[in-house]
Each structure stands twice: as structure tokens, then as C-alpha cells.
Design a protein around this nucleic acid. Structure first.
Lengths: 236, 236, 236, 236
DNA sequence: CATGAATGAGTCTTCATTCAT
DNA sequence: CATGAATGAAGACTCATTCAT
């Protein structure tokens, strides 16, 4: 599996230290989990950064980008607003990284789930993708849910750097469907792009209403969704 | 068909004229179109108000509520920012009315479409509802699309007044599905609430990607969606 | 008795009609009552003007000049804010006339009371002046109370035109005291200016606490005040 | 002597630091002077806060509350308008504290003066109270003069939190008079409340005309006032 | 005479950002 | 690394004022 590269624009430090020094766009392919990076030997700096990002993600997700203030983020991260600027150059940089992590996280999750499955039916592969997408969105990552929820309302210049990765993710799904169709598991007359829109749309919208209760709720939702997508609602 | 009542909180005019005077919650049941109110004898004031609302809806939809400034709204309505306050008491009041009009518009549209159909299969009824919802969302109403898109990120106190109408709309859909299931056109084991979530979710998400090109695009999308929902993607 | 001339600066109409046409600074010497000018044959215009002024006076008195908006004044006068400009050129012009009427009213009242008394002791004359001042302030004139209350906080350019009349009023009181002292009814070592400040101060401050209840309350207050001023609080 | 407690409503810091941190209602009983707090080790923040308050007090006093803009206050304190919000949550909060300090200052001054005097005649005690009140008002405290001058024109909700302390101050004076009357130094038929109104009114009104020139002017004024109140103006 | 509708200058307030400590 | 203190640009909102009708 290829590592997913960060799509974020590079910023060369106008600030002395900060931006330049830290290794922002580490390829994360070999990391098990993108988020729970409580590696024991993590620098204090690194921990603060992460906390800021996580706080930001939660707030962005709930309130949107522009309704979220740096003071809110700082409060949630238990620091003072000014301190954020040691770790980030601007609010937009935080957004950038939140978006990036978010998409990379689902992408990785889905890819991993599918690839780990090995030789299975295409429907099964798609089912796993659905599940992984939903889990990322609803259970494991505030980054992913923030991304999904706020991306559409951002101004062009903030969306732009994330297009390539988004495109790649879309194509990954398209490929799943193409493969399934070629194998005859999906009707031949089904166009892939609208299908992907429909499926991902139904998945993404869950953010708006789904409230995580017990562990299995997401899995059940995933199963239900797969069934719906493949069989439809009609009496068989 | 009963008119849909405005769910919005009433505001008693502390403002000069406007707020108090205009008949905000007019039942719109008998109007063909809620929005293109180019009634000939419309007061100047009424026209400004509408223009402001329409401008606001477009901007809210594109950028979200908090990223939209009154100056932007005013510019789009070709007036000065201060003048908005002749017609509205606050930015929130504008939001309120945008949300209200938006939901009432889809609701009316869907209801009308279904009721106009008369005696048809339940699948057909649902198909018509899907079409009406999509048309309202993607073609006819910036209010509806604004509502759908921004509602989820609003703070509690702004969402609250719109709950009842939202609930009513949800229940209307539920009833469509319940009827269809009772009639055997939908599988008996299909639970209605998740189904509605799934369907409306898929529809609503179209906002995020669908770009209106030609007249028929939405109708085609609607048809495709109906097929998908009823038959699923599997080879028959 | 000489009529008291308006001290207000004249404004030559930059506006077409309004300011120029109406007889603003009518000497009021021969009118019985400066305020209850409900003369039967009063023009509608004249009535509106008066109503605006009276409304303004009440509001100025209660809230001060700058906290009072033209819309509040208009509302109280049961017209719309824009209409005020038919009668006045600016908020300041209203203020000007309120102040002027207010001071002229007390001045007239006091003068009348004293002069009407004819040949009486100086103490009696001063007592009558006290009573008249208090009645004007607390009972009959919102103009007077507005004047007393807000004058001190106005910017220079608004106070200036009223200085002469204020000075004249002060001198009138001074004369009362001088006469009384010359006649031996006031101690010879008593300086007149501080005395006048003291007396008028005590009277004016009643605005801050006195709430008119029954008809006689003011008269009783006046009597008490006279006693206090002449005899002091000591045991005789 | 008991410290005078702040009557001001408490504000729990929604603001960053300031509001929450500072010990607003410090009992000041043992401080010599409430205002000239040039304590050597004062924090920068504390100094700014004080400067803002002092500037505000001066402007409020001269122009009233609503005519005073934050920009004016800021300019006088040599900062930018926005910076005020680091120290205060709103213009009203500034007012609140100005009023509070103002009243506490006179109250303390008067109390101290009277209590320091020890065993003296009641007339002497009242004389000292008069002097202390006048000194606070005219010489030492912009807070006190601001309070006295603007309180009456404030809207209810701004006056309300200060009622208890005002009441307490009034009662303190009442007690002085009651004691004097009981001791026979004031005529038995003299009612206390109107007397207090009269005396305090005469004192407070000095704000409107007294201009501090030399050091002794206030003391002389106080003496004169005491004489007037006790002996009246009549020939002995 | 009066009003409806609008304007622009100014108000309080917020917020991302800076920087000395 | 972090904070306290401040800034300036911008935001929502107010208000005296204008003027066509």
C-alpha cells in the first residue's frame, strides 16, 4: 500500500522557528493510527500541537470554521490563545492540517480495510469500505467529520490545496465500483460517478443526525446501508 | 392540503416599521411558487425585503451563516449595510426567515407533488417526493439549499425555533414510507426512520456536488436516485 | 414686568420653509401659561411642534440628551422620526428650544410670584420664589426639569446660547437676597453668591428624588425648605 | 469600622483574564485613599485598568454616560479602543465599577472622618461629614463626582445593582441626624429624611458650579455650608 | 404635513494576530 | 514554550439625517 501524501501546501517559514522546524507532512503510511499518537516519547511541543488540532477539529465540526474562534480552541486545549502561534502560523494553517488529517484518516482506513480483506467478493469489499468510512466519520476521527462537514462552505483558496487528495479518494471509490461492475456484481448500466456520489452522500449525511451510542451502532448502520445500496428497498 | 405554518418565533416590533407590519407567516398553500413572488403590486419595501432575503440565502448557502457579513448581503441586494436594519432587526432574524422559507418551500413542494399525483403506486409517490425535494434543493430555492446546508452547524438557540417544522417534514416522509411498506411495496423488515435518514441524506448531500447545467439534469438525477433506492445496485 | 427674551441663537433657514416661517422666539410675557398652550385656534403644525417639544423634554429629563433618540421623541409624539424635520432642523434645535422654554418658564414663574405679592417681607418674597421655583421644577414643567437636569452635562457649544438667560436668572435671585440683607432680614456677613448657590442647589436637587404625589406635597416641601434656609436646624 | 462591601453585581469571567482575576470588591477600610493607588508593585494590567477607569470617570462626569465613547476613554488612557476589552467586558461594566468606586469612596471618607473625630458634638460630627462629602466630591474623586452626576439619568437596569450601597449611605446620614436630634442639637420637629435630602442635595449640587481653585476653597465651602444648615440665614 | 425608505458616519464589540517578557 | 497585554481591522448595529412621494 502506498502512503498517502499530504496534499497541503507547504509554507516556508515567515516565522523564525515554528513552521520551519517541525516535520509537518510526515508520511504516515507506516503508522498504525493517525490520531491516537500518544507515543510515549512525544515532545511537549508535539503534544500541544496535537491537542490544539484535536480541539480545533471538534469545534470546526460542531460550529464550522468561521464561527470557531482561536480562543475557543485555546480554551479547549487548555492554553492561551497567544500560545497557538508558537505551533501554527495562522488559523488557516490549523484548518489546513485538520482537513488534511481528516481526509487522510478516512482514506487510510478505507484502504486498509479493503486491502486487509484479501480475496473477497466485490460487494464485500464495498461493504468494508462503507463500514470503514462510517467508522472514521462517526467514531474515530473528529478530523474526518470536521472535514466532511465544513469543506463545502470554505472559500476557494482554502479548499484548493485539498483537491488532489479528495480527487484521489473519489477515484479510489470509483475503482471499487468499476471493479464490481466489471465482475458483474453491479448492474452494467449503472454509471459510476453518480453512484459514488449517492453512496458517499448517504454516508456523509449521517454526520448530521447519527449520535454514537453503543459500540455496535455504527457497524449495524454500515450493514444496513450496504444492504440498502445493493438490494434497494423493494420487496425481493 | 393544510397550509404549513411558520415555525419561526414571533418578533414584536421594537424596530420601526417593518418587522411588525408585514405578514410574515402567510400560509402559502395556494401559491404556486413560494419564491418567485414577482407579484405586480408589491410594495417597494416588500421588494427590498425579499431581495435581502434572497441575497442572504445565497450567501449563507455558499459560505455559511457566520462567514457571511451584512455588508456582503447588502452589496448583493444593492443597498447599504445599515439599510438592512430598516427591514430586519438583526442578522439572526434574517437567518430565521431564510430557514423558515427554505423548509416551508420544500415541504410545500413535496406535499403538492404527492397530492397532485392522485391515485398512483406508493413507489411513484415516493419518486415524486424525491423529485420535488431535489428540485427545491437544487433548482428553485436558495432558501431550501441554505437551510439544508447550514442548519447543522448553527448554535442551539438558532436551531430551536425550527424544530417543529423539521419534525413535521420528517414525519411526512415517514408516513410515505410507512404507507408503502404497509402496501407491500417496501420490504416488511425495513425500518422507517433509518430509511428516511438514508434517503434524505443521499438527497441532501447532492448540494455538495451537483451543479445545475441543463433543465433536465435534476429530473434525471431524481429518476436515477429513485431507481437506486428501490432496486439497489445489484444485478437483478 | 418685562418680558424675558429668548436667549436662543437664531438660525436662518437653510431649510426652505420650516425654521424661517414659524415665530420661534415669541416673547411670552403676556401669556398666562407658557406651556399649556392649547389655544383653540392653534394650527396643526403648531400643535405637532409643541408635542414634539414636550415629548423631548420628558425624555431629556429622564435619560439625558444623548441617550434620547429622535425615534423615541417621535414615538412619544405619535409621529414618525422623519416628520420631526418638518418642524425642526436638528436634534440640537429641539434641545435649544427645550432649554429655552424651561428656563424662561421658571424665570417667569418666580418673577410673577414675587411681583404679584406686592408689599411683603423679604423673607416672604424669597419664600414665594422658592415655592415658584419648586412648582415649576417638580410640578408644571418638563422643560424646566429637563433644563436643570441636563444642562451641566452638555458640551460647550450647546450651553453657550443659554448663558445670558441663566445669568439673568441668577442675578434675579441675587437681588432678592441683596434686598433682604440690606433690609436686615438676612445676616450681614452672608455672602450672596454662595448663598444663592446653596439655595438653588438644594432646590434643584429635589429633581433627583422628589416624586410628586399629591397636590400639596410641593407646597409643603417649599415651606419646609424656606424654614430650613432661614432658621437652620438648630434648636432655637 | 466595617468595610463597605461592593454592591456591584458579580461578573464571572467570560472574558479572558481580567474580570475574573482581579479582586474587585476589596474592602478598602484600611486604605488611606481609595484612588491614588500608586502602589509600587502594581501589575501592568492593574495600572491599565485603573487608568481606564479614571479616564472613564472623568468623561462620564463631564459628558454623561451615553455621550462618552469608548474611543474617548481609550484616547484618554492612551490605548486603543479595542484594548479596553482586555480589561472590561463592556462599557456597562466600566460604568458599574466607576459608580461603585465613587460611592464607596465618599462613604468611606465620611465614615472615616466621623469616626476619627471621636467624642465630639453632633453638630461637629455632621460638619465633618459635610466636609468629607464635599472633599470627595469636589477634590479627590472623579469617581464620586461621576456617580453623583450621572446616576439619576441612567436606565433602571444600570442603577439597580447600586441601590443597596446608596441606601446604606443614606441611612448613615439619617443616623447622624437622628443622633443629633435625640441629643437636642437639632430641633425636635425636624423630620430626618427631608432634612437629609436637603443637605445632601445642597452638597451634591456644588458639582454643577464649584470650580476647585485653591486648596482651602472646599474647606471654606464646607464650613459655610455647615453654618447655613445649622443657623440658617436669619439674623440671629 | 407626514411618512417610508434609505444612508453614512459612528458606536460598541470581536477576533486574529503580535510581541516583549 | 507559554502568557499577558495590546492592536487594528472588521463586524453587527444605531441613529441623526435626507428626500421622494
Amino acid at each position: 500500500m502506498r502512503a498517502i501524501r499530504s496534499s497541503t501546501r507547504s509554507r516556508d517559514g515567515s516565522r523564525p522557528g515554528a513552521a520551519a522546524r517541525r516535520p509537518k507532512a510526515t508520511p504516515v503510511a507506516n503508522k498504525r493510527n493517525t490520531e491516537a499518537e500518544d507515543a510515549p516519547a512525544q515532545l511537549k511541543s508535539e503534544r500541544s500541537r496535537d491537542l490544539i488540532l484535536k480541539s480545533a477539529a471538534q469545534l470546526f465540526r460542531r460550529q464550522g470554521f468561521s464561527a470557531t474562534t482561536l480562543r475557543q480552541i485555546a480554551a479547549k486545549a487548555k492554553i492561551k490563545a497567544g500560545s497557538i502561534y508558537y505551533h501554527f502560523e495562522s488559523k488557516e494553517e490549523i484548518l489546513d492540517e485538520v482537513l488534511d488529517r481528516g481526509l487522510r484518516h478516512v482514506f487510510e482506513s478505507v484502504k486498509n480495510a479493503v486491502e486487509r480483506a484479501g480475496k473477497v467478493s466485490h460487494r464485500r469489499r464495498i461493504g468494508l469500505a462503507i463500514e470503514a468510512h462510517l467508522v472514521a466519520l462517526l467514531e474515530t476521527s473528529d478530523f474526518t467529520s470536521a472535514n466532511i462537514r465544513i469543506y463545502g462552505q470554505l472559500p476557494e483558496h482554502l479548499k484548493k490545496p485539498h483537491r488532489p487528495l479528495r480527487r484521489a479518494y473519489a477515484e479510489y471509490w470509483d475503482q471499487l465500483f468499476i471493479d464490481a461492475r466489471r465482475a458483474g456484481e453491479i448492474r452494467a448500466d449503472m454509471e459510476v460517478v453518480p453512484l459514488r456520489m449517492f453512496v458517499i452522500g448517504a454516508l456523509n449525511w449521517t454526520i448530521e443526525w447519527f449520535r454514537l451510542e453503543d459500540r455496535d451502532a455504527v457497524l449495524e448502520l454500515a450493514e444496513r446501508t450496504e444492504l440498502l445500496i445493493f438490494e434497494g428497498v423493494s420487496k425481493p
